[in-house]
Design a protein around this nucleic acid. Structure first.
Lengths: 200, 200
DNA sequence: ACCTCAAATGAATTTATATTCATACACTAT
DNA sequence: ATAGTGTATGAATATAAATTCATTTGAGGT
């Protein structure tokens, strides 16, 4: 086993992480084998165990690495906006852009993160952090008078997250063929105005 | 192997299906073993292979059985409503009620159905059928002038399904502790009116 | 009571793959 | 050049669990 300090910095560490990302995305975590990952990363099977504790650890580190980056982008996007509606728009746009730019990550997040008992417990629960972002935005929106006062925030935030994920799932199922980011505006429009025809 | 005809009717067949439902829900498909399922169903390991081709087949038949029932309920719920908004409300309420009444099914649908390559291909894709229900309702709503004309139906239906699933996931994560069906009205209200404060 | 055969059993077998480890390699310092 | 140290290899091993099958059980039927 390599020294803890250096282990995570080497080029090889990232080759394996990326290889694993590609393999997990293609076959799913359970059907992926260490040999496949090793081949994809261009290393021997045994080498993987110099950098990772075991197969689970690969997934764990992958999610950890990606989500750290993801939430940093998220924070930047939200902070750069003034009012709640713009924050929401930026958040959604950022989410879609990051997933579009890294389809392996997108596939893995959408398919493996849900109900992985024992992983989400270690991992700073991805959707939890996300939902906190949303709570803040909604509450700010209510203070600004921009969003309804009678909203049940606990529900609204799942509602928002669920809908983005639904849109991403569809995009993933279509192998990322179309532009995902352009869904941001119509999506936010739905959040804000709903589907009812108020004109009539 | 039992005769095809009789195999699926026996009491034992359903014991195994239910046992599997409980075990899959508790441990997830991959971590569930045949022995656990057999124990839960009160039969010997080998007996399972008299009724099912293999472990995958158990999940497949479980999903098939449950989704057939589910969609029947769904159809009844939708047909019993006059206008599109009521149909939507009934659909969501039915969805939530059925999941609430069968938490094993709920857990399995939410966690195993997504990205199970080779299963959704056999199984009449659950979300596909669901999305067709939604398309019809939305289009009807537009004809009735009850829903906006400028909606991108392809987006709206994922939006709706995604949001219900988000709400169900939260409920499942809380071990079904609170009443799920009561989320139907506020949820539909959000679909229809959005979160924006129009009064101000 | 005995026979027959479908149904059930669970220990033995097979299979698949995660993980280990003895060996080989490559770089640096002396 | 050679020794020494950290790194990489991949064949061999360990393990776990799915699946099989020789054997047993039990419910009619004679």
């Amino acid at each position: 086993m390599l020294k803890e300090r250096e282990r995570e910095k080497t080029e090889k560490y990232y080759s394996i992480l990326n290889g694993a990302g590609a393999v997990f995305a293609r076959f799913g975590f359970h059907k992926s084998t260490i040999s496949q990952i090793a081949a994809e990363a261009g290393v021997a099977d045994g080498t993987i165990y110099l950098y990772f504790k075991n197969k689970d650890d690969i997934l764990y580190q992958f999610l950890n690495f990606k989500s750290t980056h993801f939430f940093q982008k998220m924070r930047d996007a939200v902070n750069g906006a003034e009012n709640a509606e713009l924050k929401l728009r930026n958040l959604i746009e950022c989410h879609l852009r990051e997933f579009q730019n890294d389809i392996n990550m997108a596939v893995i997040f959408q398919s493996e993160v849900r109900y992985r008992r024992g992983i989400e417990s270690h991992l700073k629960d991805v959707s939890k952090v996300y939902l906190e972002f949303l709570s803040e935005i909604i509450e700010q929106g209510q203070m600004e008078g921009r969003m309804r006062q009678d909203l049940f925030v606990g529900l609204v935030k799942r509602f928002i997250l669920g809908a983005v994920e639904g849109v991403i799932n569809t995009w993933v199922a279509a192998d990322g063929k179309y532009d995902l980011v352009s869904m941001a505006d119509p999506l936010v429009d739905l959040y804000m105005n709903g589907i009812q025809n108020n004109a009539a």
